[in-house]
Design a protein around this nucleic acid. Structure first.
Lengths: 209, 209, 209, 209
DNA sequence: AATGAATGAGAATTCATTCAT
DNA sequence: TATGAATGAATTCTCATTCAT
């Protein structure tokens, strides 16, 4: 799917607003005001507000699989190294795409069966399968324990990251980092989180601490 | 704050609907239809839809602190035992109050500065402080490592649990548990999650695995 | 179905406007402006513009059957007298309810399968059946010919009346009656039409002219 | 007025849609989608949606007068034969141009004073005058009664035909002809209608039955 | 204290038409 | 001459809240 400049501008405005206020909490007018386009453009380009959300999912979901795919197929790294890289990749992407991941986190909660849900489901399934293969490889090589619950692991990976992002102002406050510039703070957060999750995963996956 | 039967009925209906559809995605009409009360009751009893949400936070948030308070003050248990109990207590309460925690998770994402946010902030701070004291106690006793990042720890505790709850249908599907009765499944989930988080926390907090 | 004063006011305004401009050609705003009520009242009372139309059909269609029913069951009149009375009754009612019949005539043309169509269908069927019974009675008594095509007969009865009403300004012009007061003109039209249709029906139904 | 291929294609699509859904119920987009032309073509070729309707009236109304004109001037036929031919001609044309006549029937109902109304008025007047002359001729020859109300007669001719066409599915159903192929059914309808109207007109116009 | 009728503001979407090319 | 992108006005409908009782 190819999008023109205006369409991308609308999707980006919508993404930010959906992340901040939720889908239902954002009006089409809010979006077009931000994107500085005409009110009719959302219907014109995307069909409806609902389909605009779908388009955002398609637009953002496109290139995720590829990165993981290459990681899994790499022959030189140990499985643990791969998991560490996986953690880093996940954190990086969720950090880059904080707004998109907020929307995804929100939409997962909604009890509905729309097109958006299918897209999320598909995305999750693809990722889960890749991680599953990575873990199985490590188990085969004897690097990892038996009886690893992949969904639980993913819940920790995604849940911790997501929770930390959505509560980063608490983190700042508690650690007295309010005055730190945002870029520096993000880097700090990323480093801390990486270390934290690597410690956790090592203990879950391997025999030794 | 004392609430009468009708007020509680409204809050319970609202809680379920806010959890399922989000605050903005739920209309006052939806709520009063569910609660089988008059349309004017929400404004009459709570002032507005916004204030109804605040009331739910006050109503649900009231008795949380108490449980943790007693836990921390207990003299007989080891710090690790206390942390394990804390994990169990958290999971239990989030499970019992899944709807309320969904709403909290959602509302944390919203970039706003309303009364609701203050309540969430307060709730989080209280809990964080108690956990902080518990950790400090363990460090003082030499049970726990130095340099423990409590906010990160909380992010893992709450994030993992929350993420697992909101994606429990994926968990069911992947583990081929669709046919298991819900009550049994919830028990299964709780057990797995407890074990998972205890393993994680042990590795984070103590020197040995 | 009971309707309050405001609901009736809305239905009457809508009826006039639908007759004049068609359903699609009339906006909800037009209706509420005429009825001097708030724009939200149409949705509030009827659910939607579509359902307002249905309500008009139900409201106007209610007492039609009853009149014909009693006519058919009368024992003293000859069948021809009954047909004459039927013609008079039809013309009277279509004259009284010109707007409603315009709407019906219009809606019959639309290729659709909504609730409105079912109501029209039902109305037509009920009437057709009653006329059919009346004709059969006349045939049994030997008053009427065999091989009478009731739908064709109805097409002439309703079609002639309807066409005359919708083109009454032409009628006025051609017969140079523009200056005649409307009430008088309506009476004149009714008389002419009665005579015309009675002549026609006598020739269709009986052996002699 | 000469129209090119694209213009005719637009008019034909519009004619069908206006007949099915009414003028206001049809959007310009519907029309251009059907005609497979660009959205701007309607404004470009016809000026506006309203003027497209006028163009259809001009396009379809052109060659009607001619046929009747020759009929009236024929010297060999009796007046009654001419009337019978007139009936047949009317039915034929209305059958061929069902969509156009639906639109005319509809537009006559609208209370407006646009260009379309003038065209309809003109069309009706021309026809009415020709029929008037035909009747006068019959009266002069002594074939027809005095005191014939031509507008009423036209109302029966056009009203019956129009009503039968717009309710032909009822006719099918009542006479259990749902399975008859459409072409055959149309022929059947035409034959029945011809006979019916001829019987009526004979009784109206002449002294004997 | 409690209600249900009523409302004006705002929601998403569709509309016929215009404009730059 | 012909187009398709773009638009502002208007569409129906829903919303949270208020008001008279």
């Amino acid at each position: 799917m190819e999008y023109n400049e205006k369409q991308i501008s609308i999707m980006e405005s919508a993404e930010r607003l959906f992340a901040e206020r939720g889908f239902a909490g954002t009006s089409v007018r809010d979006i077009v005001d931000e994107a500085r386009v005409n009110i009719a453009m959302v219907s014109y380009y995307f069909g409806s507000k609902e389909k605009l959300l779908e388009s955002i999912f398609k637009y953002r979901g496109e290139n995720i699989r590829l990165q993981l795919e290459t990681l899994v197929q790499d022959q030189k790294m140990s499985s643990m190294e791969k998991v560490f890289l996986l953690i880093g990749t996940y954190i990086d992407r969720m950090m880059e795409r904080q707004n998109f991941h907020k929307i995804m986190a929100r939409e997962q909660m909604v009890n509905a069966t729309g097109a958006t849900h299918k897209l999320i489901h598909q995305l999750k399934k693809t990722n889960q399968d890749l991680v599953q293969r990575l873990i199985a490889e490590g188990q085969k090589k004897g690097e990892f324990k038996k009886n690893i619950d992949v969904p639980l692991m993913m819940a920790t990976l995604i849940g911790t990251t997501s929770n930390l992002f959505t509560t980063q102002h608490y983190y700042r406050e508690i650690n007295k980092l309010q005055s730190m510039p945002d870029e520096q703070f993000q880097a700090h957060l990323k480093k801390k989180l990486n270390l934290h999750l690597k410690t956790i995963f090592k203990s879950i996956l391997t025999y030794e601490a």
